[in-house]
Amino acid sequence: MVKLKNIPGLSALSAAKASASPQPDGSKGMVVIRDTGLLDKINLRCQADNPVITKAVKRMVGTDLPTAANTFNQAGHRSIIWLGPDEWMIMAENGASDDITAELDTPEAGHVAVVNISDALGAVTIEGPHARDVLAKNCAIDFHPRAFTKGMAVQSLLSHAGVTILCLEDDKMMVIGRTSFMPYILDLLSDSSIEYGYDYQAA
């Protein structure tokens, strides 16, 4: 079997060049946007109490299956995001999806759907004291530090694009979107950051 990891492939934002806008006086700090490059992603559908899956997730991701709405669990480079009452997304390093899928997608697991969507989605991180302001300009989720805290993940709209937004740190978020929407999402985020100054770094 051909290992994808060993073939050079394009990320959602491979065509996007590095760009920047200077930090004006009085800004609390630049917004730093980074392409996450190739990250593997697996969509998982099953009942939340599926014992085979719960164990396999613990084994392969290193955390429990998150059952609280709007959250994700992370262990090292791998994480699992709650998307709905019977839907999750696993994120892992490039090339990890084959092994993870093999562990999850077994006859013993019963009614499950484990689907590799690594290439269907792209992601950027957005970092800095104004990261929340930039997101709030385009998304109606409450991004106040009291309301959107580390470990939360929401699916919503970033202007006209469907996205999943993760709170990685107090001032660092991840925006995951459909591959074909990523150039638009990057344009939105960088345009919204001009007020504070930004730096976009390609993967």
């Binding site: 202007s159 006209h160 591959t179 074909s180 929407f181």
Partner: peptide, 19 residues
């Protein structure tokens, strides 16, 4: 209208072979 004008009026989706 805000920033939803010109290039950001609506997303434009392209395939991987676009370039």
């Amino acid at each position: 209208a805000g920033r939803e004008i010109k290039g950001l009026f609506d997303p434009i989706r392209g395939t991987r072979m676009d370039q």
